[in-house]
Amino acid sequence: MHNTIIIGSGPAGWTAAIYAARADLKPMVFEGYEPGGQLMTTTEVENFPGFEHGIQGPDLMSVMRKQAKRFETEIISAMVDSVKQIDGGFEVVSKGQTYQSKTVILSTGATARRLGLESEKALYGNGVSACATCDGFFFKGKNVIIVGGGDSAMEEATFLTRFAEKVFIVHRREEFRASKIMQERVKANSKIELILNSEVIEILGVDVGHVTGVKLRNTVSGETSEMNIDGVFASIGHEPNVALVKGLVDLDEKGYVKTIPGTSQTNIKGLFACGDVQDSRYRQAITAAGSGCMAALDVEKFLAGHE
């Protein structure tokens, strides 16, 4: 039986692995469907302490992975299909193979929310993008829409102006949730135009195989209109990846895994959670890493108390 299985490979998962490995627990990490997590689709990370001049998100994750590997972490590049409680621990199933572990650290993170439109799905990769930093490049001199009203929407809109001729921010409400500094940056940018009190109800172009426009609905008047556009990006928040433990652990009212305040302990003994899957509030690389450290120390203590 393994000491601990870590599910997820963002900053929380790798930090947990580094600490658990250094405590000689020989952790096993399942990297999942999107190894490296959300930082893999960011560019410059300027607020992770220790990198004076910033570091690219994917580079940061690659270094963390190497660091975990250096201390005898077993890495499995696969998704976990299920987790259940067994006598003395947990049973984790991945690709038809079963693994048993005394503890589990859940660090499955959160995934960007989509608009949830059929046309969005149909045109994904053909003008609909889930990654502004990956795909902005292909919209040189074109017009794009970004849906959202938070800091990351403002950040991505600003990033997209490097390539696009015009960036329209479509937001459901009159006011943005974004911080003042980000809003001001956006308002001062002549390439950005705001379309407020509006939502995208359909993406046009399914018939021709690429995005040609969008159908908008005014959230106040209910009126609909169409506009021509070449690309659609969405930045409308995140959903915690809890599918794996639904029904097993308690979730909070926002749907995130509930942990005992000040610890990484869930309501199930031996099951710990860290990173964005249990944090709807801070959601930073550094807080995720910090909570990953907490989870590994909690596991160490838990195992010591059981021997």
Partner: peptide, 25 residues
């Protein structure tokens, strides 16, 4: 018409016959 990366295109006899968008295991 690659508008997103990674995109994998499959060519057969000079024609595009398949398109796979995004990273995966």
């Amino acid at each position: 018409r690659v508008l997103s990366i990674p995109t994998m295109l499959i060519f057969k006899g000079g024609q595009e016959v398949g398109k796979i968008v995004g990273s995966m295991p």
